[in-house]
Amino acid sequence: MKSLLILFILLFSMGCSENKITNMQLVEKYYDGFQSSNFLQVKNIIDDSLTTVYGDYTTNFTKEKYYEQFKWDSVFKPDYKLISLKKSETAIMATVSISCSKFEFLKNNPMICNYEFQFKAGKITRIEELNCDNVNWDVWENQVNDLVHWVEINHPELDGFVHDLSLQGAQNYLKAIALYNARH
């Protein structure tokens, strides 16, 4: 009887350890969720509190607030390609190619960026953009400034789109790009 109990515990613990998802797999699932527009998949692998760092901008999200970011991002029809994953002692480094209509307008399509992912208790807790070596930030900034200036003069109803990270803000951003491109 005692050996049967030990055998059962051993088999149960082996089954549980085989089902444990690795941090590398979490990052793969994260980008797969964005690529397939499946927020439920993303929601299940991020922590209740997620921090993102992009340059000087640090943002803390709840899952609900991150869903707003997810919806904003999806408006631009992004195409995510995970190029590589590397494991460090405390994090996973991901190199990702992202193409979308916004980056195309900003003349930096695709963007290839490196990110550091950190984890706690099997969930993603922090994503930091380390660099985007192929991006020409001067061209990016000029395109944004030209668009914002043109919109202020010609379509003031869309003014503020560039800082509005809501679904409506992203839709206004796309509308501004379309109007700007059609002006000739």
Rank of each mutant, 00 (worst) to 15 (best):
Q143M: 11
F34M: 10
K63P: 02
S88E: 13
W72P: 03
T90P: 00
N44K: 11
T59N: 12
W137N: 07
D48H: 11
L85A: 06
S36F: 09
S74Q: 15
K107P: 01
Y31I: 05
D48V: 11
F103I: 00
D73Q: 09
H163L: 05
E89V: 03
F76P: 06
V162W: 12
G160Q: 10
N181Y: 01
N108M: 06
H184N: 13
I112D: 04
F70I: 07
N142K: 15
N114W: 00
W72Y: 15
I46A: 02
H163A: 03
V42L: 05
I6H: 09
D133L: 12
D138P: 00
I153K: 14
E152N: 14
E116N: 04
T59W: 06
V151G: 04
D138M: 03
L82K: 03
K120Q: 14
V162Y: 12
I83F: 01
N131L: 07
K29C: 00
T22G: 11
D47I: 01
L167M: 10
I92R: 01
A91I: 00
T95F: 00
T62N: 08
S97E: 13
W72C: 05
L50R: 06
R126F: 11
T58N: 10
S37M: 06
F119K: 10
V42A: 04
K107T: 07
I124R: 05
D47T: 02
